[in-house]
């Protein structure tokens, strides 16, 4: 691998319930099975990605131990902790060898228990591009519903935004707004479209025409996903033969294979 090439760095975005976590988790595991080192970035305080990966949800955010407060009360990374150390020490393991770095989950105390890890996570993702030893890692961020994190620069690593969209107006309008905001944040980023829960023949075309973003995957509505989601388990473990897994395999194919070869 030459000095400038790098493994894909994606942020998965869309409206709530569009299927972001299922797509992100399945894609992460399939890429890991192909031999890539995969880092999943979970910046949602809800456990969607963990459930879809089939990973445990830690009681306390592991990254809380990475941050400390200075005299002014501002949180910063502890001395000696950068993106590489953070991944080594504070990421957790998910099936197929995917590593997960997570912001931490809220409980009824609200955001307060995750405030250190919240800050640590934000600082780590802003320095992740500078870490040479992470260059050949696929980085896959699963952002919470809506445009909020995109607007506040929670995907500074993203070369590509993967918009997961259902063929409904609410989902399409949300995706259009996120794409508009992301374009102003990251002028060099690519956008690609995953049309999910497709039931009619012209669904994908309709969504693609509305958003005018290149279509990379058409994912059918599927009982396997419904039943995995009901059980709160990974689609890959619950219904490995689901046509949704096929569709996400093809999505994995379309990612730049050349740049993904390990050096």
């Amino acid at each position: 691998m030459d000095a400038t090439s790098r493994a894909p760095r994606l942020a998965v975005v869309g409206k709530g319930g569009a299927g972001k976590s299922v797509v992100a988790a399945t894609l992460a595991r399939l890429l890991a099975r192909r031999g890539h080192r995969v880092l999943a970035l979970d910046s949602d305080t809800l456990p969607g990605l963990s459930l879809s990966l089939g990973a445990d949800v830690p009681d306390e955010p592991p990254l809380n131990a990475a941050a400390e407060q200075n005299e002014q009360g501002r949180w910063h990374l502890k001395r000696g902790i950068g993106p590489v150390r953070a991944v080594q020490r504070f990421s957790t393991e998910a099936p197929d060898g995917v590593r997960v770095l997570q912001i931490g989950k809220t409980d009824r105390r609200g955001l307060q228990p995750v405030r250190p890890s919240h800050n640590a996570f934000f600082q780590i993702i802003h320095r992740i591009d500078d870490a040479p030893s992470l260059r050949d890692w696929v980085i896959l961020g699963d952002l919470p519903a809506g445009a909020r994190q995109t607007a506040f620069n929670w995907a500074p690593y993203a070369q590509r935004f993967l918009l997961v969209v259902e063929p409904t107006w609410q989902s399409m309008l949300t995706a259009r707004r996120i794409a508009r905001i992301a374009r102003t944040m990251r002028e060099d980023a690519d956008f690609s479209l995953v049309v999910n829960k497709v039931t009619a023949e012209d669904d994908a075309e309709r969504v693609q025409e509305f958003l005018d973003i290149p279509l990379t995957a058409v994912v059918p509505a599927d009982e396997g996903v419904r039943s995995a989601e009901r059980a709160g388990v990974a689609l890959l473990d619950h219904a490995p033969d689901s046509p949704v897994v096929d569709a996400i395999e093809r999505l994995a194919d379309t990612l730049d294979v050349a740049s993904m070869q390990r050096s």
Binding site: K15, R148, W169, M172, T174
Partner: peptide, 19 residues
């Protein structure tokens, strides 16, 4: 009260009008 406001769609105001 959603910062991704879509209630207009479900009220029948129309998607583009809601936007």
């Amino acid at each position: 009260a959603d910062t991704n406001p879509m209630l207009g769609v479900s009220l029948g105001v129309g998607p583009e009008q809601t936007d």
